[in-house]
C-alpha cells in the first residue's frame, strides 16, 4: 500500500538559542546566536518500513530523533503521526496514546537504563505508566515474554543492568521500548556503541521484530554498512537538511547528490582501490552555515548559483534530491 504513510515530517526546524546570558550580551553588545540544528527537513515513512537518516557527526541526525520523539521542542514545522499533527494534539489522553505508540531506543546502552532498577522494573516501567497490565501476575508474564522475545532468559529480569554486556543491555532497551506495544520506533544510533559482531545480532533482532510485530522504524546512523543492512528508504542529511531521499538499492547503485557520492566513496574496501579521493574538510558550523547550498564549499561540482541559491528537493523517479547540478543535468 503506497499510500499508507504512518509518519510525516514537514519542513521541520529545530533551532537552539545559544547566546550568552542577557546581561552579558547587553554589556558586550553581542548579538543573539541561534544554532540551526535542523533547518527545514521533510520526509515520510510508510507503515512497516525502515527509514534511515545518515550523515556525518554534527549534521543534526540525533536532534531529529529527539525532536520527533518530543524530547526537544520544535521551532516550526509539522510532525504528523497517523494523521494526527503532534503540535495540535492537546487532549491529554491522546498525548498519552501517541507516546505509547511511539517509543525510542537510545545510543548508549550504558546510560539508557537506570542503574538502580532491576531489569524487570525497567521493562515494566512503560507497562505501568500506560496501565497495560491487568494485575501483577499479568505484568510479570508480559515482562517474561518480552525478555524471551529479545533473546534473554526470564531469570535475567531479577538482575541489575551492570550485570550485562553492551549488547545484552541494548536487548533490554529494545524489550523496554516494545513493552508499551508501540507501532513506531525511533532508533538513535542503537548499534554505534557496540562491537561489530554484536551490531549484527542487534540488527537481525530488530529486523525479526519488525517482521513479527509490523513495526515502523526511524533509524539514525552514521554507519553506511548498518544502513545498508536495515533500511528500506534512506535520507542523507547534511547540516540540518536532507540532500537526498532514495530507496536503499538506488542509493548504493545510483547515488545522485554529490555529497552522497562522496560518502559512498569513503567506504573502505579490501581490494586496494586507491582511486578513492577522501571527502575533504569538515561539516561547517551550523551557527554560521555557508550561503546557498550548504555543501558548496566542499562540493567539486559547485558553481556560482550554488553559492547564492538554496536548492530545494526535486523528484527524480522514486528519489528526491536537492542539488542544482543534478537539476541542471550537469551530473
Amino acid at each position: 500500500m503506497p499510500n499508507d504513510i504512518i509518519f510525516t515530517v514537514n519542513n521541520l526546524k529545530v533551532h537552539f538559542d545559544i547566546s550568552s546570558p542577557f546581561i552579558t550580551r547587553l554589556i558586550n553588545g553581542a548579538p543573539k546566536l541561534v544554532l540551526k540544528a535542523v533547518d527545514g527537513l521533510s520526509f515520510r515513512i510508510r507503515r512497516g518500513e525502515t527509514f534511515s537518516l545518515v550523515g556525518e557527526s554534527g549534521c543534526g541526525k540525533s536532534t531529529v530523533a529527539r525532536a520527533v520523539s518530543g524530547l526537544y521542542s520544535v521551532t516550526s514545522g509539522d510532525i504528523i503521526i497517523d494523521g494526527q499533527n503532534l503540535a495540535e494534539v492537546k487532549n491529554k489522553s491522546k498525548i498519552t496514546d501517541i507516546s505509547r505508540r511511539m517509543q525510542m531506543i537510545f545510543q548508549s546502552p550504558y546510560a539508557s537504563l537506570d542503574p538502580r532498577w532491576r531489569v524487570r522494573d525497567i521493562i515494566a516501567e512503560p507497562i505501568r505508566a500506560f496501565g497495560l497490565a491487568k494485575n501483577k501476575e499479568d505484568e510479570r508474564s508480559q515482562v517474561e515474554k518480552l525478555l524471551r522475545q529479545v533473546g534473554l532468559s526470564e531469570r535475567d529480569g531479577e538482575k541489575f543492568p551492570h550485570e550485562f554486556s553492551g549488547g545484552q543491555r541494548q536487548r533490554i532497551s529494545i524489550a523496554r521500548a516494545l513493552s508499551s506495544r508501540p507501532e513506531f520506533l525511533i532508533c538513535d544510533e542503537p548499534t554505534s556503541a557496540l562491537d561489530v559482531s554484536v551490531q549484527a545480532q542487534i540488527l537481525n533482532l530488530m529486523t525479526e521484530l519488525q517482521d513479527e510485530l509490523g513495526l515502523t522504524y526511524l533509524f539514525i546512523s552514521h554507519d553506511l554498512a548498518v544502513i545498508d543492512h536495515i533500511s528500506d528508504w534512506i535520507g542523507v542529511m547534511y547540516l540540518g537538511r536532507v540532500c537526498e531521499i532514495t530507496p536503499k538499492a538506488a542509493l548504493f547503485s545510483n547515488p545522485l547528490h554529490p555529497y552522497t557520492r562522496l560518502l559512498l566513496e569513503t567506504i573502505p574496501d579490501l581490494k586496494g582501490n586507491n582511486k578513492r579521493s577522501p571527502l575533504e574538510g569538515e561539516v561547517p558550523s551550523p551557527i554560521t552555515p555557508p550561503s546557498g547550498c550548504t555543501f558548496h564549499p566542499r562540493c567539486p561540482f559547485a558553481k556560482e548559483r550554488c553559492k547564492r541559491e538554496r536548492p530545494e528537493l526535486i523528484t527524480l523517479g522514486e528519489s528526491q534530491v536537492a542539488c542544482h547540478a543534478v537539476e541542471e543535468k550537469r551530473l
Binding site: A111, S112, A129, R176, S180
Partner: peptide
Amino acid sequence: RKDYIAAAQLIQT
C-alpha cells in the same frame, strides 16, 4: 542528561 531520564520523560512520567 542521561538517556534513562529521557526514556522516562518519553512515557509521560
